[in-house]
Design a protein around this nucleic acid. Structure first.
Lengths: 188, 188
DNA sequence: CGTCACGTATACCGTTCGGTCTACTATGTG
DNA sequence: CACATAGTAGACCGAACGGTATACGTGACG
């Protein structure tokens, strides 16, 4: 039942990276939030902070990826899109616009943590791979499906960033309305 | 002719924030790159690092904003879009995928530098204000124009982030192809 | 000439950084 | 019991952090 030390560390890393980025997340912060002894960090992650952050990017990527998979296998692309947008709006409002996408934060902090950036690359590739077959099944030309998938991810990630800057969810709503236009009515 | 101390500091701050983010940019780095005495920083920016970074976000926002204005006043929306995409591709390849958008970096680093985040908000609002009248003049419904403008900015910003993660410009090309679909042929 | 603004150079402040170390405590399990 | 495993607690390291202080140089202007 109780979370393991490793899980607590990864969970804390995800939350802190969402709020402060990679460079802005210190080991001391991680210890305080996780309530874990300093030494335990290097027991589970001999590579130190960067290895922990890389693992947390993988974990967050898998969690969100599982949600994406659940959405696209149970709903149509437009419905999945709405639900995904709603997820991000809740994350933003629930954190008073302090938390963004941890994967994006890792991509931007890639200079100091190259392994975390590579992990971010894998996560984004995975997310797109989940979308492409659903888009083609929905009637989108195979040649265009990967571009639509990339654009959906990019526009939402960019909108989350705009929401952080604006401290408002309106950018996500505006992006939502336009991304719907990229999804043709079925049998299109 | 020679750059003033203030200009050197701001220019250095823009480049460093593009590469390392707000939290990852140290005063020592700024001194080394700008070749300026430590004391001079606090002479020009009594608020220290945060004030300097806020000024650099304003400066970078104005520079890119001026480019956007030049593009949209001399070319059609699709042509402007292509040129803007090309600008980002050059920035990425010219920095070996180490430099991204400094405004986005400020938005993500807003936790530790709130004034810089507010400045990022103003910059993005300005960029969108430059696009909206051109989109309506191009035939896009007034109710949709602001959404198209937001989506264009968001998708490109997100694509730049994906390019950093992938170390490849392909995401920008894919996003480009889909953003074109949001711009109807004239008299549409 | 005096002085004052602007700049450099560098020492220094207290704090925090990531990471290592020693010592101790549970909880099993052979 | 013996002993390994996994954890806590906390001192400690050298380096880097943002910011302040002191001393000096230089050029414009009254």
């Amino acid at each position: 039942m109780t979370e393991s030390v490793r899980e607590r560390l990864i969970g804390s890393a995800v939350e802190l990276v969402q709020r402060h980025g990679v460079a802005g997340t210190s080991v001391a912060d991680l210890l305080e939030r996780s309530g874990v002894a300093r030494r335990s960090v290097y027991l589970h992650f001999p590579g130190g902070k960067n290895e922990l952050i890389t693992a947390s990017v993988e974990e967050a990527g898998n969690t969100i990826g599982a949600m994406i998979e659940r959405l696209v296998t149970t709903q149509s692309p437009p419905e999945s899109l709405s639900a995904f947008i709603e997820f991000w709006k809740h994350l933003l409002t629930g954190s008073d616009f302090e938390a963004g996408c941890p994967i994006a934060a890792a991509a931007y902090g890639g200079q100091e943590a190259p392994e975390a950036r590579e992990q971010a690359h894998r996560v984004f590739a995975h997310w797109q791979d989940l979308l492409v077959p659903r888009l083609t099944a929905y009637g989108i030309d195979e040649a265009d499906a990967s571009a639509v998938a990339t654009t959906t991810i990019a526009a939402i990630e960019g909108a989350v960033m705009l929401c952080l800057a604006d401290r408002d969810t309106a950018p996500l709503d505006r992006v939502h309305s336009q991304l719907q236009r990229l999804l043709p009515p079925q049998t299109g």
